[in-house]
């Protein structure tokens, strides 16, 4: 028996998320006296994969045939299923992002395994398997049990943190038997985006609201984000007005994110917006209105003119990062 961690392969690179997921799996494994096994699909160098050993993974299956570089959810599901059987995995962990959401539910059906997404903490019990998850878009926490033989989890990013736990990692080639051709889904076009960092992956998010007054003024936030290696985001009215692309909208009806730091700049902090960031470790509210509800949920707050504060902050962070290199 083992715990299987699905390792996301982003163009030959690992994401920090996968390290955190491995650390989470290792904590479960220590309690249950199991090994942590990983599965990665597509081309990726062993040097990159070795990092996983630092967080407690002892064995990694690598299905690196080039034909799998193109993600097809249906095929990926079958590859994971075969890996589950190969290593007799009782618990299967996916990242709580678009890829995890695309494959884990499919696998749940194939394995008749209980599927628990948006997990907030380590399991509180294994008999029966019990864990806390996010519900009602952050307005409640649900305790969920699964009585199935296998269980699939997607722990939320930053819910657990990175914990080093070095191991010798054995990387093995894995050749799944996929009978049918890959071609039910055919790629007919692709555009690479300029901005590299995805909102869901970002440790730091710089987000602006109506208080930014115009689409042009978001340049200030982009500069701050560039300094911090952060992603940019926005509130709903900003996306609805087309000041920013719709996929940057964070909130109850947009993206739900849980970065380490969320800068809410010129965002009043309506309940629907806060629902999208309630998982953030630290919320920084910057608003000209001292009564803005964002200060009810923020960890740090500053009242003032964003157009003055942001450039100053940017300069200070630049200096700070330079000094601490």
């Amino acid at each position: 028996m083992s715990i299987l961690v699905y390792i996301r392969n982003v163009g030959g690179q690992l994401k920090k998320q996968s390290l955190e997921l491995t650390a989470y799996a290792k904590a479960m494994a220590d309690t249950l006296n199991l090994e942590v096994t990983g599965l990665v699909i597509g081309t990726i160098a062993d040097d990159e994969l070795k990092k996983l050993g630092n967080y407690g993974m002892s064995r990694l299956l690598k299905a690196d045939d080039e034909k799998y570089n193109q993600r097809v959810n249906r095929v990926y599901t079958r590859i994971v299923e075969q890996a589950v059987n190969e290593v007799d995995a009782k618990y299967i962990l996916f990242p709580d992002n678009a890829q995890g959401k695309a494959i884990a539910p499919r696998l749940s059906v194939r394995l008749k395994a209980g599927f628990i997404p948006q997990v907030l903490d380590l399991p509180s019990s294994y008999e029966p398997f019990t864990v806390k998850k996010r519900a009602f878009t952050g307005k409640a926490i649900a305790t969920v049990t699964a009585h199935t033989e296998r269980v699939i989890l997607t722990p939320m990013l930053n819910s657990f943190g990175l914990r080093e736990n070095a191991r010798d990692l054995e990387i093995q080639s894995f050749e799944p038997h996929i009978e049918e051709p890959n071609s039910r889904l055919e790629l007919v076009g692709k555009q690479l985006s300029e901005e590299g960092l995805q909102l869901a992956d970002a440790d730091i998010v710089v987000s602006g609201g109506r208080g930014m007054r115009s689409s042009e003024n978001f340049a200030l936030l982009e500069e701050l984000a560039a300094t911090l290696g952060a992603a940019t985001a926005c509130s709903r009215p900003v996306a609805d007005d087309g000041w920013r692309p719709a996929d940057e909208h964070v909130g109850q009806t947009g993206k739900i994110i849980a970065p380490n730091i969320y800068f809410a700049i010129g965002i009043s902090g309506a309940i629907q917006h806060v629902a999208g960031v309630s998982g953030a470790k630290c919320i920084v509210g910057i608003n000209s209105d001292p009564e803005a509800p964002i200060f009810e949920v923020a960890d740090y707050g500053m009242v003032g003119d964003a157009f003055q504060i942001i450039p100053e902050l940017n300069a200070l962070f630049k200096k700070h990062i330079h000094e601490n290199k």
């Binding site: 749940s108 008749k112 395994a113 209980g114 599927f115 628990i116 019990t130 806390k132 519900a135 952050g138 307005k139 409640a140 926490i141 649900a142 305790t143 969920v144 049990t145 699964a146 009585h147 199935t148 309630s278 920084v284 509210g285 200060f295 009810e296 949920v297 923020a298 960890d299 740090y300 707050g301 500053m302 009242v303 504060i309 100053e312 902050l313 200070l316």
Partner: peptide, 25 residues
């Protein structure tokens, strides 16, 4: 496949710390 057994309120925040200057932040 799974059972929702209980609900709890999310932990309340410790309260905001208001800062006066970008340096403090």
């Amino acid at each position: 496949l799974v059972e929702f057994v209980m609900y709890t309120a999310p932990p309340s925040k410790g309260g905001v710390k208001m800062l006066n200057t970008p340096e403090e932040l």
